[in-house]
């Protein structure tokens, strides 16, 4: 499997604060890769750099063999990089269908085609019964699905999911996990920032751990769960010992 995305030595500073510090990693094609880490580790910042919302002070982003570091957001979207927002950003005044259609218009010039594509995508993520509701009327879970649907409608090669599972209850979570897996099975590469560890463990083939702006560890979810450095980054000093047996059992 080839490499779809390469993040090379990326540094982002906000004034004196180093949000991302020389981060390098790759994402293999047609996999689900997780990006985890404690709050404030720089995950969302790194997402913003990959999707083009932030320019890094240093380093570069290579997507499908092309250096996209200096390209604006919409050009990267045309290349096939789609993202969702951690804080959902629906077009509140539009219906669910119109929201998704905005994404679908990227690959379809014609209105009928774009709306048909919106309907298909809505079916895939389970929004097909809510197509005519205003986006503002959706629940949190609905809005997260809408984020996913809009991004999917652009027919991405790389899908960046920024905490699409956060705030979902266990039954909603059970519904969404197969959807994400199905997206991957259709050949879309997924890079996800996630706090819901149960989801990360069950979905991701590979996980990168970010802490205080630096890449701390990487590996399969099972390896990561056993890694004492990771456990300590999350839970503090000494936690690794107490939880060691629990984590291996979980994987």
């Amino acid at each position: 499997m080839g490499t779809l995305l390469t993040v090379e030595n990326v540094t982002v500073r906000f004034g004196g604060l180093v949000a991302v510090d020389r981060a390098s990693f790759t994402v293999a094609e047609s996999t689900i890769t997780g990006l985890i880490g404690p709050n404030g580790a720089g995950k969302t910042t790194l997402f913003a750099v990959v999707s083009g919302f932030l320019a890094p002070q240093q380093g570069r982003i290579v997507f499908a063999g092309a250096d996209v570091t200096r390209e604006p957001v919409h050009v990267r979207a045309r290349r096939g990089i789609a993202r969702t927002f951690q804080i959902v950003q629906p077009f509140a005044g539009l219906s669910v269908r119109e929201n998704i259609a905005v994404g679908a218009y990227l690959r379809h010039r014609d209105r009928a085609d774009a709306l048909a594509e919106a309907d298909r995508v809505a079916c895939r993520v389970g929004l097909d019964r809510l197509l005519h509701l205003p986006a503002a009327a959706l629940t949190v879970a609905g809005r997260k699905r809408l984020e996913l649907a809009r991004a999917l409608a652009t027919r991405p090669r790389l899908l960046l999911l920024d905490e699409v599972l956060a705030g979902l209850n266990p039954s909603e979570l059970r519904d969404v996990l197969p959807i994400i897996r199905a997206i991957r099975d259709e050949g879309v590469t997924i890079l996800m920032v996630e706090h819901v560890m149960q989801a990360v463990m069950s979905l991701c083939e590979h996980v990168h751990v970010l802490a205080q702006g630096r890449l701390l560890a990487q590996g399969t979810p099972a390896e990561i769960a056993r890694d004492p450095r990771v456990i300590e980054a999350y839970l503090g000093h000494g936690a690794a010992q107490r939880l060691g047996s629990g984590a291996s059992g979980h994987a």
């Binding site: 629906p90 991004a151 652009t154």
Partner: peptide, 10 residues
């Protein structure tokens, strides 16, 4: 409705 979201959708 939302310039950032529009941008992200190409």
């Amino acid at each position: 409705e939302n310039e950032d979201a529009a941008c992200a959708l190409g």
